[in-house]
Amino acid sequence: MHRLGGIVEKIRSKNAGPFWLTIDIFCGSDAAFETVSKALKTGQVADVFCAQRDSIKRFDIPDLCVIKFSLPRPTVQGSPQDRDMHGASYGALLADLEI
């Protein structure tokens, strides 16, 4: 088992509008992309965000060595419950995943 953040180059999370969150995993090499693309399960990502598996969009993009996940924001941007206006910190949760 390896920590995802230790294998890939960068994990970035951002708002995709007030109601969606998007997370880009920049693998940094073809080898890392192959590994992560096979080993990282969408269900694991859903569990991290307490989200429904079928609410998550996944894109594996070999040309960029990027795996992208998009999901409805865990809290709507700027709502009283929101803690992270720009959605900047959610990627850190994926970095700690073991694959």
């Binding site: 951002k14 708002n15 509008g17 998007t22 880009d24 894109f59 993009i61 960029l64 990027v66 992208k68």
Partner: peptide, 16 residues
């Protein structure tokens, strides 16, 4: 080509 294509990821829920 990488920096240009990668911008489709930015703040987009679908890069295509």
């Amino acid at each position: 080509p990488q920096t240009v294509f990668a911008h489709m990821l930015y703040e987009n829920s679908d890069p295509f």
